Simulated scan of single mutants.
Amino acid sequence: MTTRQRHPITPVMHPTLVHDFYEPDEVEALFGIVRRHAPWKLVLAHHFKSTEEYLAVSGGAGVDPAEVSLSDFIAPVFRDYLAEEGVVFYPEVHDLYFSKKLLDPVKEMHGAKYGLALHMLFNTGVPSHSFDAGHFDSANWRGCSIVNTPIWLLSVMAKSGLFDHWAVKTGQMITYFYNSDIDGGFTYWPDGPDLPPRRFKAPFDNTCILSDNSKMYHRRESNGPAHQRDHPDIRLESLLHSEDPDHWVVRNGDREIARYRDRDMRTLFHYTALVFDELSDVRTYLDRTDDLTHEKVFEVLVHDLRRRGVKFTEPTDPMTDPEFIALLNKTYEMAPREYPAAAPPAVRGAA
Rank of each mutant, 00 (worst) to 15 (best):
E26D: 15
R35D: 13
D317W: 08
P340V: 06
H19L: 14
N223D: 09
R35Q: 14
G349E: 07
F163C: 02
D212V: 07
L102Q: 05
H303G: 10
R35I: 08
D233W: 05
A167H: 11
D20N: 15
K101N: 04
G59K: 02
S180L: 01
V93K: 01
L328V: 08
S69F: 07
D205F: 11
R266W: 10
M216V: 04
F73I: 06
K49S: 12
H135L: 13
G125H: 00
V347D: 09
S138G: 14
F312G: 08
E67F: 03
G125M: 08
F324I: 06
L305F: 11
E323S: 10
K107E: 06
F122H: 03
H37V: 08
D262I: 01
P232L: 07
I234S: 01
V106L: 01
P322F: 06
E52I: 02
S128L: 02
H94A: 14
T51G: 02
H19F: 08
A341H: 12
V18Q: 10
G62Q: 11
I33F: 07
A351F: 11
F276S: 03
L279E: 14
L274T: 04
G59Y: 07
I9F: 01
K159S: 06
D20E: 13
L286T: 12
F269K: 05
P322V: 05
R219N: 07
A226L: 15
S69D: 14
H227C: 09
Q172T: 13
H7G: 01
Y114A: 04
T149Q: 10
L30A: 02
A139E: 02
F73K: 06
T10N: 08
A117G: 07
K100P: 05
L30G: 02
V347C: 07
A29C: 07
D194I: 07
T313F: 15
E108L: 09
P91R: 12
D64I: 05
P190S: 04
I209M: 08
A29F: 05
G143S: 04
A75W: 03
Q172D: 15
E295W: 00
R306Q: 15
D132F: 02
R255A: 14
I9L: 08
F21G: 04
D191C: 04
V282A: 01
A258K: 05
L82E: 03
I209T: 03
F298I: 02
T313N: 15
S160L: 11
L327M: 14
H294E: 11
V126E: 02
G60E: 10
F131A: 01
H231M: 12
I151H: 13
F48M: 12
Y178M: 03
A56Y: 08
D254P: 08
W40C: 01
H241R: 07
K330C: 02
T207S: 11
S138M: 14
P91F: 09
F131L: 15
P322M: 09
G134I: 04
I146T: 13
G309M: 03
E338T: 15
H218N: 07
H247W: 02
P345A: 00
K107I: 05
I146W: 12
G349D: 06
R261H: 12
A45N: 11
Y188E: 01
Y176V: 00
G171F: 06
F31M: 12
L279A: 13
D80M: 03
E314Y: 12
M157R: 04
T170R: 05
L305I: 11
C208T: 15
R198I: 02
D290S: 14
S128T: 09
N329W: 05
D95Q: 13
I209G: 00
P15D: 09
G192E: 06
D132I: 13
Y54C: 12
